[in-house]
Simulated assay, not measured.
Amino acid sequence: MRLGFAVKVLGDGGLPSHDTRRWQSEPSLDVSLDRLEAILRYCAAYEIDMYRMPTGLAPYASHPELPQFRDAPQVFAERLAEVGALARELDVRLSSHPGQYTVLNSEDERVRRLAVEELEVQAELMDAMGLGPEAVVVLHVGGGAGGRDAALDRLEDGFARCSEAARARLVIENDDRTFALTDVLELHRRIGRPVVWDILHHHCHDPDRIPDREALALALATWPDGVTPKIHYSSPKTALEEKDKKLVLPQLRAHADMIDPIGFEHFLTETAAGLPDFDIMLEAKGKDLALLRLRDQLTARGVALTS
């Protein structure tokens, strides 16, 4: 079982994830790839074998008003191949997760078109890196306007607008407010793409009251033979915050800085026991530090991540 973290490296003083300069400064995919290479070597040094790349790895490549950046995956194809070869050599599983503005099922035709373009860019990057089918682009269903069926219909339509290469990378995740596991399983039946199960989202939004073990098994079964499934795991935030001299209670859906090791141990030894192998992307604000701390805590408790 691989454990991964997303985007930011906080350990060893921190590492930049990509070229974040504004477009006027001509940010470059080449700079981003230098930074990705440094992160891959950091992962290897700490025996971390899964990493979520920043969506903006190729700066502005999907921006509709800055077409001068669109050909970055082609311009830097050779460098992408080199970094992809390094990821394979180090056996680091890579993925990406476009954010809230990539809405493939939007009612707005322009927003849907931009979402398709973003998915095309992500697929071009992964293909140029020579990454296998385990390198996926995770997406939420999107907006719920018009009701569940209409929203799923729009996602299916948006998916059909993507190229074969982009469709081959896409996987769908349940969310914490609108589209539960049963909804993304329905999408799997329609478009044939795997489901990434997010356990915290499931605990926040599960109108069908599906037990965790059953939910996990259902999601894992959507992945094709020969491709290791992945899920998302996080612990809910429990710490109080003070804003404007007032205490603010955390929302259940908010991610904690670290992963609760006791809850995670229970998940491994009870919920996941006996099910097919899968990888876990940890979604904690502590990023790589949360992963390393969890791994140390599991070792101290005698819990193995491999069978």
Rank of each mutant, 00 (worst) to 15 (best):
2 R>A: 01
270 E>V: 13
101 Y>S: 03
283 E>G: 09
205 H>N: 12
120 E>Y: 02
129 M>V: 09
274 G>P: 04
228 T>W: 01
302 G>N: 03
167 R>F: 11
245 K>Q: 15
77 A>C: 07
180 A>D: 13
274 G>L: 08
106 S>G: 01
102 T>K: 06
149 D>K: 00
73 P>T: 02
22 R>K: 14
224 P>A: 15
20 T>M: 08
283 E>M: 01
11 G>N: 02
92 V>P: 00
207 P>H: 02
114 L>G: 11
207 P>K: 08
279 D>E: 06
109 E>G: 14
130 G>Q: 01
48 I>F: 01
57 L>W: 01
19 D>E: 04
210 I>M: 08
216 L>T: 00
37 E>S: 11
149 D>I: 07
246 K>T: 14
258 M>I: 12
274 G>K: 02
177 R>D: 08
271 T>V: 15
257 D>L: 10
225 D>W: 02
294 L>T: 00
130 G>V: 05
104 L>Y: 10
173 E>V: 10
19 D>Q: 00
163 S>E: 04
81 A>S: 12
221 A>S: 13
299 T>D: 15
4 G>F: 12
210 I>H: 03
169 R>C: 12
240 L>K: 15
262 I>K: 07
11 G>W: 06
157 D>C: 12
159 F>D: 00
258 M>R: 12
88 R>V: 06
112 R>I: 03
227 V>C: 08
18 H>G: 05
302 G>Y: 06
287 K>T: 13
290 A>G: 13
83 V>L: 04
226 G>V: 05
62 S>M: 07
88 R>Q: 13
299 T>W: 06
46 Y>C: 08
295 R>P: 06
222 T>G: 07
28 S>V: 06
63 H>Q: 07
210 I>E: 02
103 V>I: 15
